[in-house]
Design a protein around this nucleic acid. Structure first.
Length: 237
DNA sequence: GCATTAATTGGTC
DNA sequence: GACCAATTAATGC
């Protein structure tokens, strides 16, 4: 972990909330106080139930955000790539982080303390607004997810998970740009790894997807979308 | 190469 | 549709 902070002014992540709103004189000092954290693949940088250490922005890499269930089962809430925000529910009223976050590959994160964030809210109104809109959107997605979990079959949930990954991370050379374990797909879709494997095998037989080891590729995204959109289940998440 | 972990398949409740 | 067991494939050391 090298603590040499990256500079926001030259940051490549133009979609980052800090980058978009906080490159103003009144926020300069606060931004300089951020920490840059480098973590290896599989490294957990937010621990559920531990003291919240503020907000994280993914500078580079891919991470998963999850809640752990009682019998060791985890529910993956979402995945995040560069420019995105992590741990945003950990600050504010509750000082305890409600989620875990784990790097899916070697990643670099920018970390702001809760106090510094509050200073930013006070100094930069557009940042507050931007974040509020983000929260609203997150809530919307979360509500869609409740509906999906209640009404979709396992097959539909797995298809939905694959489409989510395709939408968010894209595909290169016919394969998704995010390679997950079968179990991770299951943890995200809300089912078991055996079920995921069965759905994947049948989708493969039906020529919707192709696989190469762990890698999964969607052959025709629109065709796969039809599998769930016909049921009016296709909502953003 | 051996040991561990993941993927797959079949079966039971 | 979850859980368990057995087999095979992949991966780490």
């Amino acid at each position: 972990m090298i603590n040499q902070s990256l500079c926001c002014n030259t940051c490549k992540n133009t979609e980052c909330f800090i980058r978009k709103n906080c490159l103003v004189p009144e926020a300069e000092k606060i931004i300089q106080r951020k920490n840059t954290i480098r973590c290896k693949k599989s490294q957990q940088f937010i621990i559920e139930g531990s003291l919240s250490h503020g907000l994280f922005f993914v500078y580079e890499g891919k991470v998963k955000v999850a809640k752990t269930g009682l019998n060791g089962r985890e529910q993956i809430l979402r995945f995040a790539h560069s420019g995105e925000i992590i741990g945003h529910r950990g600050f504010g009223v509750c000082k305890i982080s409600p989620v875990s976050a784990i790097a899916l590959e070697d990643s670099i994160l920018c970390n702001f303390t809760n106090d510094d964030l509050i200073s930013l809210f006070n100094q930069v109104p557009s940042f507050s607004l931007d974040l509020m809109l983000f929260y609203a959107e997150e809530l919307n997605k979360s509500e869609n997810k409740v509906k999906k979990f209640a009404q979709m079959t396992v097959r539909e949930k797995v298809i939905d998970a694959l489409l989510y990954i395709a939408r968010k991370f894209g595909q290169t050379d016919g394969y998704l740009n995010l390679t997950l374990l079968r179990k991770e797909i299951a943890d995200f879709a809300g089912t078991t790894d055996e079920q995921v494997i069965r759905v994947i095998s049948s989708l493969k037989k039906e020529n919707f997807i192709q696989t190469m080891g762990k890698k999964i590729g969607i052959i025709n995204i629109d065709l796969l979308k039809k599998e769930i959109s016909e049921h009016n289940f296709y909502l953003g998440s």
